[in-house]
Nucleic acid binder design. Structure first.
Length: 290
DNA sequence: AACCAGTGCAACCGCACACGC
DNA sequence: TGCGTGTGCGGTTGCACTGGT
């Protein structure tokens, strides 16, 4: 697909920092007409910006529910924990931090927490191993350097999830050592998170996970997760049914808007009685997810 | 006071996916 | 079915600011 047509450089569009007047125009327009149809917004709002830029400005800065100011220690702790579970899924992490944007969290991580994590890295146990030794001790590589999950007496081949880490794909992980578990690249390569595990398991072994609250969260034939909506009384769910569309995007919707984290973890524990080697991972998560 | 390196953050970029036609 | 569009996402860049020398 590539570059969106609305973002062509040769249209005399403004670039760079937004002015107060531009902010006001955009805010006023969205207050009246609402979000969506971003491509039309610049013209209708009298802005010399591409729609994509307008969307970004609104979502990351102008939205009224944006929480400005420093990240609190509680938020920081949550970010760290969620990052250990999810990796660089900034939107997922942001979904658990009301008022914070994925961009803000991403910046905070890259500028502050990544360095701190690197500095605090223990020589004996990695952060992941401290969470649950099962996670890393059971990940090996086959002869083709593909990650292999070793659980019980079964080997589960772990395909690299598409789009998990562009940096890893393009070899742009120079900022991090390969052994650094806190780095985005190594996170995707060595630390299969919960969702990734669920995605990568074969259907026969992990066919159906039933989510309470009336929704099914399952692995489909192709190994991707899919969500089947059974309820109509969850506005958050229905609102997001046509948004995003990636498997983890759907997980995000369900997770961030449908269930509280506490319930999610305890429900997962109940759900996982048949998950074999993966159950311990989920149970391990129960110890540290707030 | 001037310079420079480091830092934080807003904005940009390219890609992926869903959806409608 | 193929294509264009709209949207979301993660990675990267650019620049203002700050502190040290």
């Amino acid at each position: 697909m590539g570059r969106s047509p609305c973002c062509s450089k040769d249209e005399g569009l403004n670039r760079g920092a937004w002015t107060a007047d531009e902010d006001k125009r955009l805010t006023d327009y969205i207050k009246v007409h609402g979000e969506g149809k971003w491509r039309n917004i610049p013209k209708r709002a009298g802005l010399k910006r591409c729609g994509k830029s307008c969307r970004l400005r609104w979502l990351n800065y102008l939205r009224p529910d944006i929480k400005r100011g420093n990240i609190t220690s509680d938020e920081e702790d949550l970010i760290i924990r969620l990052h250990r579970l999810l990796g660089n899924r900034w939107s997922l992490i942001a979904g658990r931090l009301p008022g914070r944007t994925d961009n803000e969290i991403k910046n905070y991580w890259n500028s502050t927490l990544a360095k701190r994590e690197q500095g605090e890295k223990k020589p004996s146990l990695s952060a992941t191993e401290k969470i649950n030794p099962m996670v890393t001790s059971s990940i090996m590589q086959d002869e083709n350097q593909n990650p292999v999950l070793v659980g019980d007496s079964t080997l589960h081949h772990m395909e690299q999830p598409s789009g998990t880490s562009e940096a890893a794909k393009s070899g742009q992980s120079s900022e991090y050592e390969s052994s650094d578990v806190s780095s985005p690249a190594s996170m995707s390569r060595e630390e299969p998170n919960l969702e990734q595990l669920m995605v990568d398991c074969t259907v026969g072994e992990l066919d159906l996970v039933e989510i309470p609250d009336g929704s099914d969260f399952r692995l489909n034939e192709s190994g991707n997760t899919s969500q089947v909506m059974n309820t109509v009384d969850n506005e958050g769910m229905s609102k997001n049914e046509n948004v995003g569309g990636t498997s983890y995007g759907q997980a995000h919707n369900w997770w961030s808007e449908g269930l509280e984290m506490d319930n999610w973890v305890s429900d997962l524990a109940e759900m996982t009685s048949g998950l074999g080697p993966f159950a311990s991972i989920l149970y391990g998560a129960e110890d540290w997810i707030p």
